[in-house]
Design a protein around this nucleic acid. Structure first.
Lengths: 229, 229, 229, 229
DNA sequence: AATGAATGAGCCTTCATTCAT
DNA sequence: AATGAATGAAGGCTCATTCAT
């Protein structure tokens, strides 16, 4: 189903796809991928706002107008990139997590996967970490929708962990999930903004460690309780 | 020294401001603040790109040109907002942290402060969390410079904690710092994007807890795994 | 090769035009001419600085953006006008001068051509004589480059004349050339600024006469001065 | 009456001078001169359009608003510069020409004076030759008014010369005058635009020579007549 | 389906001028 | 008379999107 690239083929556009869109989608998948690939290149290099459609089209070897046969508009390209990138991570995660028992292992697996995937595609990382934020408020809802499967994945891991007794009962699942995602996000962003010079995947172990065990050295039972407001 | 607003008064512009800039900046502090305040309003409402200078000017009760007596350009307004917002948090943090001994207490203090400050100013939070990301690469360097004091603050807390023996020696300070900041960032962003409906500051306790102690329940030497999927 | 208008068709833009420029330039020559023609109208009427692109576009029957498919910017339009106007004169001059022997005849030919051409197109004359001077220093270099062929033409005539013995050996070629061009320039400018009411070309004879023979009556060796104040 | 500078003091502004203007004019002549001097500096350096009033004011050591106590507007400064520059040349010319008999000598005198004066003040030359052309059409009438005395001077010389029999009867006075002025203008402009590197005044002799005797070597009587249309 | 020339809305910034002090 | 902070009009240019071919 997947050729190894993060670009898995056209995804049905949601809001009222025009007639030709469905046709086009089926027509030439290679062209669809070429445009996405070109968009990653151009956007990573110049940023979302400076990535002109004409440059993307030229890089993809198609005419400007052709881009609009495959994508609703410029934002749609960006969104599609995110959808494919995150979609692939979620998909891979589900596959690998299938046979795992411990929430700890699952978390480790997801973190490794996330950092490996983005670490292997600096340009994609640049686009999702940096360019994605440059879009306007209206689109953020869509981003949320795309991220939701990944959030759910993390939520499930956290709640499983609590249920299993591996994770502490006192933690708030949503807050924990935000810690996990926020940490991943910040880790990747820092990596991207400093030039993607080191091996991102190598940080997975330390990241997981600090997520699992926190900052504190083990404190004797008396101090162990967290102070809630 | 401060009237309680996040806008603390003109900050000396760094890179070779035009001659009159320095004079004007000092001249009418009320006007400077009015423009910043208006910018927060307009940007929070419409986003950075759709926040026209003329609307900001009108909201501030000044002419368009007057904005440029106090700010170099549109980006400078955004940067100034961040500078004031983060600057205030860093300043307050330094004051409060002065008498604290435990790194744990310090972290708790900073987290509380951060969530309190942004929680009390949803519009500012919207601007810093969302609009700030909409700018181009060139400005990111400046943002980094502004955030650096805050990063340093966190770094110091982490390293103090390790030195004191309160935090685990095994943790990587930089990764730990990214966890802390990433968690705060994600927490505030989630709050902003869902409409700032709940009390952000109330989450400080849980956030600190999960940062300090991680996800895992303390595992006594003899591990008894809870077997359940 | 030429339809009689001073607008001879697109000229290849020199300094690294955007990719599409070269293509577009060749694509629709009628549109290119229409814009230039419109620019002459509007600039002659309102002057360079008050000639808004939108007015030129409207006069040419195209959208504002279309102007930028054919010209780099507003200055480029002005430069192109000069290039075409002077280019045509230089081209015609070369053709006509080909069979001429006497430098005197050549000069007469060029002067006639110059005054005929500009005399036949008062609006173009207005633009080259008046508007062209309104641009900033940066562009003046380009103007110099365009005028150079015409200067060279005059220089050649002068030096040929000296070599042939038709012109006096004592004259400084460069100064002579400045006299010729300065006289032409002033003649056309005066004509334009007084409303282009008389027939400019009719002055060619008198202009050539005074250039060739100067102000002084020939002084026979024995001078008899007419005494009168 | 003159301190050696081309700036001879305030000249009564023509069109409806406001009340305070007359007062100001008398009030502080030094300030008036300082502004003009500053304007020459700034305009020569940056061109008319880039010469901001605030920079001129600062260079003159006065406030922006003060400039408007001495000049109607920015164009008025430029016009005043021309008025003083040309006015001085006309005045000096009248003085020197008083005792001269021969039109030839008079012309030589005026040419020398013109090239000496502007040659001694490259900045003023830059302003009158280059910046002056950058103003809009409306002002050209005023420039004409200012130049008129100088034109009249040249006209008188030409007509005297013809009457005296020194100059040829066949020449058209107005065309001759345009040759003289056009040549001077072009000579000075070329000098300014190439960086004012050589001694302009030294060219006076050659310029006069070519103006007086034209390009042609003396032709025997049969060919001497100019061909009129 | 593909093209790519044409469209035109949109906006930041400058700076000559004013006027309250 | 002098100041200089405030004014606000004005327009060149970009580029995502369209649509005739």
């Amino acid at each position: 189903m997947n050729d190894g690239s993060f670009i898995c083929g056209p995804v049905r556009v949601r809001e009222a796809p025009r007639e030709w869109m469905r046709i086009a989608n089926r027509r030439d998948e290679a062209k669809y991928r070429a445009i996405l690939q070109a968009a990653v290149q151009v956007m990573a290099e110049s940023g979302y706002h400076h990535a002109q459609i004409s440059r993307i089209a030229r890089a993809a070897g198609v005419a400007d107008g052709t881009v609009y046969l495959y994508f609703k508009n410029k934002e749609d390209i960006l969104i599609s990139l995110l959808r494919h990138g995150i979609g692939r991570i979620v998909e891979l995660s589900h596959n690998r997590l299938a046979g795992m028992r411990s929430a700890e292992d699952k978390l480790r697996c997801v973190v490794e996967l996330y950092l490996q995937e983005l670490g292997a595609q600096p340009q994609l990382a640049m686009v999702t970490q940096v360019n994605l934020r440059q879009v306007d408020a209206g689109i953020r809802r869509q981003i949320g929708d795309i991220m939701k499967p990944f959030y759910n994945l993390l939520d499930d891991i956290v709640m499983d962990g609590i249920r299993e007794g591996v994770f502490r009962e006192g933690i708030q699942p949503r807050i924990a999930r935000r810690m996990i995602f926020g940490t991943l996000d910040e880790t990747v962003t820092a990596w991207v903004l400093t030039g993607s010079k080191y091996d991102l995947a190598k940080q997975a172990g330390d990241v997981v460690d600090v997520l699992l065990h926190g900052l504190c050295r083990y404190q004797p039972p008396t101090v162990e309780r967290s102070v809630e407001s």
